[in-house]
């Protein structure tokens, strides 16, 4: 694991309208690590991700990526930051009017001076990495959910960014595809040194890929646990953390109360 903090979040407060969803959130992500943000539904995982990549403006606090402060207003810096970042969205967010190859080629064509034939080869390599050879001319609507996700990943890593963000990568995938995606994440992390920031609540995936996690909680509006997932599972004193990692329902839950 690299020692340099590539993402620094300090005293972040974010929310929508009147609701404050995250408050006093501070953490670092170090270069080259696989970092997982997890927590129950509605705890602000996606909000945190959006704040980090500059899609929403936090109420207060400071976020820096690779030394540059993320600010919605400072377009030049934001552009510089965004070049170092790739995002795989929950629904893959492929452009429906373009083929898979065109989707992946789009950033390469825009930001490099490579000739068209070379871009074609690159696109083939990228799609090969995510096991989608032969689907170059398909439209996103002709692909299954898992294939779309993989194509979305190929596009996110088109320019080999320093940091890849994943919003619920396993959502809607079968266990086999999900495991393949995990392997791919680990492989990219190992071979290219890409820092991975993953938002998920898929337990198996967390144990498979995460080197370090933070857990957010709705009631605490912030981080309730930080560290290695296996260690936390076995040693955490926090009730919610234990429940989460051992997949137990709330004791006050409807089902358990009904069965008593």
């Amino acid at each position: 694991m690299g020692s340099k903090a590539i993402i620094r979040v300090k005293d972040l407060r974010a929310g929508y309208g009147e609701d404050i969803i995250l408050d006093h959130v501070s953490f670092n992500v170090y270069e080259g690590e696989v970092f997982v943000i997890l927590g129950g539904s509605g705890c602000g995982k996606s909000t945190l991700l959006k704040a980090i990549i500059g899609l929403i403006e936090p109420r207060s606090g400071k976020i820096t990526i690779d030394g540059d402060e993320v600010s919605v207003d400072d377009d030049t810096t934001l552009q510089k930051i965004l070049r170092k970042v790739g995002v795989l969205y929950q629904g893959a967010a492929l452009f429906g009017s373009m083929t898979i190859a065109e989707n992946v080629a789009l950033p390469i064509r825009e930001y490099t001076s490579l000739p068209k034939e070379s871009i074609d080869v690159l696109v083939k390599m990228k799609l090969g990495l995510v096991n989608l050879e032969g689907y170059e001319n398909y439209l996103p609507s002709e692909l299954s959910g898992g294939m779309k996700k993989r194509a979305g990943l190929a596009r996110a890593m088109a320019l080999n960014p320093k940091i890849l963000f994943f919003d619920e990568p396993s959502a809607g995938l079968d266990p086999v595809t999900s495991a393949e995606l995990d392997d791919l994440i680990l492989y990219l992390n190992r071979s290219l040194g890409t820092t991975m920031v993953i938002v998920t609540h898929e337990l198996q995936s967390i144990f498979a890929v995460a080197q370090r996690i933070i857990m957010l909680d709705k009631r605490a509006k912030g981080i309730i646990a930080e560290g290695n997932p296996k260690y936390l599972r076995d040693h955490s004193q926090n009730q919610f953390v234990k429940q989460f990692f051992n997949r137990q329902a709330d004791e006050k839950g409807v089902v358990s109360r009904g069965s008593q």
Binding site: E117, D120, V121, M125, G128, N137
Partner: peptide
């Protein structure tokens, strides 16, 4: 992994 040895054959899309 990128099949460098056979890369030329599958050049263009």
């Amino acid at each position: 992994i990128l099949h460098f040895d056979s890369l030329d054959e599958k050049m263009s899309i």
